[in-house]
């Protein structure tokens, strides 16, 4: 079946079998291999992407379901050569080790900050509880998200002042 989908702002299309999962549409058809697959029971969240802005486990969505929709992956976070504050936060605070869960974590926390610009530690921990990390023990991820939240709100403040 033919799928038309906007990925990271760019229209894409592919012919796939109906059983194709969104994660593999992205990885195999569009070569966006930042979206990882770490389990087969919708447990790990390494495959998290934004589907019309909502974070979902792309291993548990069919490619056909996103026909006509917009999908954002980790490759879509950087803008004009500038890392997203979350990417910078993860880097600055050692929020990753092997890097396998990182794209999923970034996409989930991206959505978290949309909903809660100033999350507490407990709120961050609950928000990322669908994403497993085997390396970091989560603590530095929490710090990274807090830094990103602070930078994003500072940036917003600057923009408001400019206006």
């Amino acid at each position: 079946m033919r799928i038309r989908v906007t990925v990271n702002g760019r229209p894409r299309s592919a012919d796939v079998e109906p059983r194709t999962l969104l994660a593999y549409l992205l990885r195999d058809e569009f070569n966006l291999t930042g979206t990882h697959v770490g389990c087969d029971t919708t447990s790990c969240g390494a495959c998290t992407v934004l589907w019309d802005g909502v974070p979902v486990k792309s291993c548990t969505v069919l490619a056909g379901q996103v026909d006509g929709a917009a999908v954002t992956t980790v490759e879509g976070l950087e803008h004009d050569g500038q890392l997203h504050p979350l990417q910078q936060g993860f880097w600055d605070h050692h929020g990753l080790q092997c890097g396998f869960c990182t794209p999923g974590m970034l996409m989930t926390t991206h959505a978290v900050l949309q909903r809660r610009p100033h999350p507490t530690e407990a709120e961050i921990r609950h928000a990322i509880s669908g994403n497993l990390c085997r390396c970091t023990g989560y603590q530095n991820i929490v710090t990274a998200v807090q830094q990103a939240a602070a930078r994003l709100s500072a940036r917003d403040t600057v923009q408001e002042v400019k206006v």
Binding site: D40, T41, T60, V61, L62, Q65
Partner: peptide, 23 residues
Amino acid sequence: GGQSLLPMMKLRLAAPAWLVDIN
């Protein structure tokens, strides 16, 4: 939502010939 059905299908514990997506 598919959050129970698709994992079962991936584990091949469920194998419907037709999938009717009501979304």
